[in-house]
Design a protein around this nucleic acid. Structure first.
Length: 673
DNA sequence: TTAGGGTTAGAG
DNA sequence: CTCTAACCCTAA
């Protein structure tokens, strides 16, 4: 017990519940995509994006799901050439990158990978041709088009269309982008079947009418497979009859060495139930820890959990241990085999326990608590806002002053980074009334950036700067040879937040019919305006980070004298503004967040696209807090030096193992870890 | 692949 | 111009 208790306590209710929400919205997003309701899809991805900013109990399947969402978001916006998810790339090129990540993580047959990639490239070329972007089409053709024989004919055709500057051709007319989207969806679904989310199961179980239990169905899959997959993901919580349960229990207990008999167990359950209605026991499928189990699993009791794709059994052993306690039965979901999903909730007779059952309280997640907070951003929408669109631009300038200026500005929104490490964004209700009363919503609003900005930041935005074009980069640049001495300067300044590398993003204006862009009213309440793509969020610049670690670092640029030996010494945190500081700081962060970086590049946005491509050769991408968190978690989990492993265990995009290593070095230097 | 020194973008 | 986080290069 105690063990389990501690386990449970390691996760906050928010993490657990956010996880349920996450699973649910991923499921809904896929359903929407399948139904060709792309507006809804973008709305769901927006919600997900916002959700993930909060601490979430993350498991590895979360990464898989996020990748799928990223992929589909890019596909969804693939016909909008003016959008970008990653700096210079078109949405479909970004989709190819995501595809590669997916294939790396999930072992996709090379042929399939090639086929999908080729389909994406062909579509991209057609999109370019249709919109008259011949140069770009040519570029794509040369760079990515397969040299395979079977595509030689197409290549020729495209070449000729490009040469003749033809943007209409029967081939172009024939292929519909909508079909392409569905094809891509089929690919994703073949690859990873999303289990029915816990929340839906609960709803169903509670007898709520109108809940369809149908898991995602994929056109190309047979039903059987579907259900098998679902089971296997462990998340299905079907109620079994007592009889079946007994049988299943017998088999499993034998297999895993559980000595408690079913009857005993049942009695205990009943007793407990009587004593407290509380929900405690549920048999559930526990999640199998996907990667190696790290910590001791204390008791995992829980129910639910979505399991990953293939669950491996290796966990069986571990789980076994846990089983010892009578009430807690963990049944590993087996390999694909037939394991039943079990979970019965309470004895079936009492129907009403459902409710209790559902109570979150008990959910524990499986082992490794991995990243507790995954924060990812994904926005999908593109927003067509017209006018103004919030001037994206400015962000950079504001940055430095964040500290100060913030003060007066509002106080409402704050970003909280937690000290604990998780980063949370809190927004206090900044916005005024507006519709959203519910907190929940608050963030969601984000989707449109503008809104989000507004909402969240209410004031933050220094509007003024808005204009400042980021562009002003200084060209100065020749190398300074003199760098000599001080290397020191490590001042704590972490300052610069990420600067957006690119200026504003422009957002595309036309909203097309497809609805892809979600824009619309953004969802919930929020003001409708537009939405935009970038999500601004999280990224707080490093400064933030720093702070989060409590080291308060200064933001100021003042010089810190350099102490000669910087690194080691504590970079004094001097400035931290004491007292009131907190406020300010936060605000500052918030500022950053909100407006400032619109371009937190790719990374930031798992789903979002920015428009406006900047074609600079390479622009540096500042590390977001989320990325740093992942890195820390990765080091904690795998140890420093295992960069590649860490990289592949978190949804980093656009970061190489070397980048991770460099970032870690920087973090050490700054004593952020 | 990683470690570690050198280079560069870009803020102050 | 200075300074530094992010990047790059390359030996091991």
């Amino acid at each position: 017990m105690s063990a389990s208790a501690s386990k449970v306590s390691s996760l906050s209710d928010e993490q657990i519940i956010n996880r349920w929400g996450f699973d649910y919205y991923v499921f809904k997003a896929l359903s929407a995509f399948r139904d060709a309701d792309y507006t809804a899809f973008t709305h769901f991805t927006s919600i997900i994006e916002n959700l993930v900013v909060r601490p979430v109990d993350g498991h590895s399947d979360m990464i898989v799901k996020l990748r799928c969402m990223q992929f589909l978001s890019r596909i969804n916006n693939g016909d909008k050439l003016d959008l970008t998810f990653e700096e210079p790339k078109t949405p479909l090129e970004s989709a190819v990158s995501v595809l590669e990540s997916i294939c790396r993580d999930m072992s996709v047959p090379p042929r399939e990978q090639e086929r999908v990639k080729q389909a994406i490239i062909e579509t991209l070329i057609m999109v370019c041709l249709r919109s008259g972007e011949f140069t770009r089409a040519e570029e794509v053709l040369l760079r990515h088009f397969s040299d395979a024989e079977d595509s030689a004919g197409k290549k020729k055709l495209f070449e000729s269309l490009i040469r003749r500057r033809r943007s209409s051709h029967s081939v172009l007319q024939l292929s519909s982008y909508a079909d392409f989207k569905q094809d891509m969806l089929d690919f994703i679904e073949r690859l990873y079947r999303v289990p029915e989310p816990f929340l839906l199961q609960m709803l169903k179980r509670s007898g709520h009418p109108g809940v369809s239990s149908e898991p995602v169905t994929s056109s190309s899959q047979d039903r059987q497979k579907t259900s098998a997959a679902a089971e296997h993901h462990g998340s299905v919580c079907a109620c079994l009859s007592l009889h079946s349960l007994r049988q299943v229990y017998g088999v499993l207990s034998e297999r895993y060495g559980v000595s408690v008999s079913f009857t005993q167990l049942q009695q205990e359950l009943e007793e407990e139930q009587e004593q407290e209605e509380s929900p405690e026991l549920h048999l559930a499928l526990s999640e199998t820890p996907r990667e190696q189990p790290e910590p001791p699993y204390a008791g995992m009791t829980i129910s639910r959990l979505v399991q990953e794709d293939d669950s491996q059994l290796s966990t069986a052993e571990e789980e076994e241990t846990q089983i010892s306690s009578p009430h807690r039965i963990v049944i590993p979901s087996g390999p694909d085999s037939d394991d039943p999903e079990v979970r019965t909730p309470v004895r079936r007779s009492d129907t009403h326990n459902h409710s209790s059952e559902c109570s979150p309280a008990q959910i524990c997640t499986p082992a490794r608590h991995t990243q507790k907070h995954n924060r990812i951003i994904l926005s999908s929408d593109v927003e067509p806002e017209d006018h103004a669109t919030s001037p994206p631009s400015s962000r950079r300038s504001s940055r430095h002053k964040q500290q100060q200026k913030s003060d007066h500005s509002e106080s409402k929104c704050v970003m909280v980074e937690d000290d604990g490490g998780s980063s949370a964004q809190v927004c206090s209700p900044a916005r005024p009334s507006s519709s959203s009363s519910s907190p929940a919503v608050r963030r969601s609003a984000r989707d449109t950036q503008r809104q989000s900005r507004i909402v969240l930041s209410s004031d933050v935005e220094p509007e003024d700067h808005a204009t400042s074009p980021p562009s002003s980069r200084r060209s100065s640049r020749h190398k300074q040879q003199q760098k000599s001495d001080h290397s020191a300067g490590e001042s704590a300044l972490v300052s610069s937040p990420a600067h957006p590398s690119s200026p504003a993003s422009v957002r595309r204006s036309d909203r097309d019919t497809q609805n892809q862009s979600s824009e619309s009213e953004c969802v919930m309440e929020v003001e409708d305006g537009g939405s935009c793509v970038q999500h601004s969020t999280p990224a707080r610049p490093s400064a933030t980070d720093t702070q989060r670690h409590n080291r308060s670092v200064t933001v100021s640029s003042e010089s810190e004298d350099h102490k000669s030996s910087p690194a080691t010494q504590t970079p004094r945190r001097r400035s931290s503004p004491s007292s009131g500081g907190a406020h300010k700081r936060r605000r500052a962060r918030w500022q950053d967040v909100s407006g400032t970086h619109e371009n937190w590049s790719d990374e930031e946005s798992l789903f979002s696209a920015t428009s406006g491509r900047s074609s600079k050769k390479y622009s540096r991408k500042m590390w977001t807090v989320q990325e740093s968190e992942w890195l820390k978690e990765g080091v904690r989990r795998f140890g420093a030096g295992h960069w590649e492993k860490i990289r592949s265990s978190f949804p980093f995009t656009g970061r190489t193992a070397v980048n991770l290593k460099d970032r870690w070095r920087t973090m050490l230097k700054l004593r952020l870890v």
